[in-house]
Every structure is written in C-alpha cells, then in structure tokens.
Design a protein around this nucleic acid. Sequence first.
DNA 1: CTCCGGTTGAGACTTTTGTCACATACAGGC
DNA 2: GCCTGTATGTGACAAAAGTCTCAACCGGAG
Lengths: 226, 226
Amino acid sequence: MSALAQSRAAELLRAVSYFARLDAAALEAVSRSAVSHHYDRGAVLFLEGDPCAGMFIVDEGRVKLYKLSVEGREQVVKLMGTGEFFNEVAVLDGGPNPVSAMAVRKSRVWVIDRNTMVQLLTRFPALSLAVIESLAAHARHLLSLVEDLSLRTVSARLAKLLIAQAEGRPEAPRRLTQQEMAAQLGTVREMVSRGLRNLEEEGIIRFDRHRIVILDREGLERKAMT
Amino acid sequence: MSALAQSRAAELLRAVSYFARLDAAALEAVSRSAVSHHYDRGAVLFLEGDPCAGMFIVDEGRVKLYKLSVEGREQVVKLMGTGEFFNEVAVLDGGPNPVSAMAVRKSRVWVIDRNTMVQLLTRFPALSLAVIESLAAHARHLLSLVEDLSLRTVSARLAKLLIAQAEGRPEAPRRLTQQEMAAQLGTVREMVSRGLRNLEEEGIIRFDRHRIVILDREGLERKAMT
DNA sequence: CTCCGGTTGAGACTTTTGTCACATACAGGC
DNA sequence: GCCTGTATGTGACAAAAGTCTCAACCGGAG
C-alpha cells in the first residue's frame, strides 16, 4: 500500500486501454491519486454490501467479481484482467459494493478512493468518457449473462464457455477447473462434468490429458444457441 | 416523428431527473437534437441485434426492455418509465442493440441518433455525468437480476417482486398479469400461479378480488432471501 | 343477457438441475 | 516410489422448474 512514483505510474497507466486518450495532465492527476495494492491468490479485495471500496484498476493479475448465495453457491459475474476497471458502479452512485472481489492469482491493482475519483471525473471530462466506455462494456456483458442464466440450459452455457475460452487465447491454455467453470456458469461441478462427458460422447470435444480439444466447432456452436 | 418546438422541449427535458443539473445551453442542444416518437401498446421500438437505434428517453408511458429465447420465452430486463434513458450501451459502444424494446402501453419517447448523441457528450461534460449515472443504475439493477436468476428460487424471486410492487406505489395498483410477472422473473405463468397459491395458503398474502394484499410482510421478506 | 378473449387454477407428467456419497485419478513434494 | 490434497467420474436420488391440457372465471362488447 504505497503511493506510486509519479513517472512510473503515468507510464503504466498509459498502457491501460481506457486511458489511452487521456492527455498528460489527466494521466498525471490520476497516477497521483492511485495507490497500489498487492493481493495473493485467494485474497479478498472487498465484499458485496460493504461501503464503496473505491475505484479499482488491474495492473497485473486476475480478479474475479462474484456473488454468493445464502447456501454458499458462487456466481462469477466477471473476470477482470490487466487494464480493466471495476467497482465503477459503487463509485458513481455512492452505494455499497454491488459484488465481492477476490484475486484468482497474485495480483497488483490501483485503487482510487471515491471522493478523489469523483473530483477527477469532473476535472477531466476525457476521464468520464473512459469510465463510460468501461461501464457500457460491463452492462453489455451483464445483459448477455442475464440472457444465458434465464434463457439457456446449462449445456448451452457450457458450450458457449468452451467457445469463448477457445477464441480468448488460442495459445495461452489457461485451463479452468470444473469448479471454476461451474461458478462462471451458475451451476455445480457435477453438471459441468456430465456436460463435458456428453460433448465427448457426441464427438464434439476430446480430452488430451485434461486439456479440452474442440473437434467440431460447428456442433459446439449449435449446442450454444439452444 | 416531429422535431419538438424548442421551448416546450427544454421544459419537458428539465423534468427528466438525469438532466436536472444541465445548464440552459446543454438543455437547448439536447432538445434541438431529440425527435419525439409515439408508440401504441405492443409496438416494438427496436429489436435486439439490430444496428444501434439511438438513445431513447421516455417522456410518457412505459417501455419494457426484454430478451427472447429461441423457444419464445421472454425475460424482461427492465421496465422504463418517465424520465429514464435507455439503449445507452449501444450508443456508447456503437454495437447492436443489446435488448429489444416494446411499449407496454401508449408511450411517447424522445430519440437522439447515435452520432448526434456522441457529439453532445463531448460538447457537454455535464451530460456525460447524467449518462454515467443512468448507466450505473442500470448496471446495479442488472447485477441484482443476475443474482436473482442464478442464486434464488422462483418463489424467492416472486416474493421480492411482490415487495417491490408494494413499495413501488402503495396507491397506484398497477396490477400485473401472472404472465407479466413470469416474464420479469424469468419463469413461466404456471410457476407464478403456484407460487401465489402457496403464499396464500401460508397466510402471507390474500386475494381481494384479484388484487394481492400482503398480510405478513415479515414472512414475505423471509421468503425473498432464500 | 350472452358470447368471447384473456386470464387463472390445477393436475399429471417430463426434464433439468442440484445433492450426496464414493471411487478414482493425478500432480507434486519428499 | 509413496503420500496427500485437489480434481474428476459416476450412480442414485431429490428437488426445482417447465410442459401439456382443460376447466373455470371474469369483464367487457355487442
């Protein structure tokens, strides 16, 4: 938890996609306000319902935003990677954090407290545009999640996830455990296990020592729509 | 589809909550750009997947934003009333409309096409703040919808809906059909019928000639959390 | 008053999803 | 190689949600 050296901060921030269009003054102001935090895998950044924890920007690592049911089932809302904002909603409306956040691996983030962020937004209109873009992307993602949860079966959601994983990075085979997939799909591990088994029996996927190989992309896409 | 007389438009816009803080110049610019449309009950304003239909502001009436499954089941995403924005997401990211929109009763709306809206946003930073607020509210609502769909039973969602209806307007008894409730809850009419029946048997609600009366608010809230 | 469309109540049944309980299987650490 | 914690496969069930079908009800329009 240390203030960033100015030049270093500005340089890092420039790499953040949403900040790309900001002028030097704005960048400098943002970097002066940001505090860098570090979290180990599994560390909780903040909890849903707590007072606004401020604006977060991922520098490096991976953070999951999630909700828990009373019985302890987890729904992952979104995974945030380098250069992405999160918790804008609480910052902007002043309400409590709408979700919980946990590092899924060693991560470094910048935090800007709510008051500071609000001032920055009024001083630098270009920053507003950056936040608007981030919010719009967030909203579009949530709408698609609502559609999936309400109108698609678990197997269809699973097929979609496999497709997304595949095109996300053809190389970086960050393999998810079935438990992680289940949390993203809003179901339980067993359903994922059975879903994968079915896809394998139908010849749509194949397992190469625990890595999933897509044999029939067409078929998978067909599954994904229903 | 007619351009608004300037003074009238500005006056109406001033009543829109999100525009409350705008100065006269901004209001004037917005009103000059807005075109008023009228839709009868059941009319479709735009469809999901079509190219951005522009920014919409409800003047009067009620518009539902919804998604349809391939089998035709409907999930209502949000109901928009007087003074609320919608379709900001498509306007801001330039993508297709993320949902469909239909008037649930005779409605009048203002429409601002995407290019115009983008120009307005850069010219009037205060307008950006208004859009940000609207987006944040939208996102918070969607997060709660995701939570409900993924982590709550249909009966819990129903209980929540009854509570929301009750405090929405204690007087205006806009009564929903079971079909409409089902579409909001992401389920089918029969489930709503049974859910209501159960609540009645448990003495939590009562029917006063098709109007629902809450007898045990506590009990209802208990149902709503599980 | 009567007819008619939209709405509601209900039973029987199917499908989907989630739970429980174990048996393997696998990857490192030692 | 042997342990051990995590990850996975699976069957048997239980519960939740959805489908199908029909009867009954209700509130205007004519």
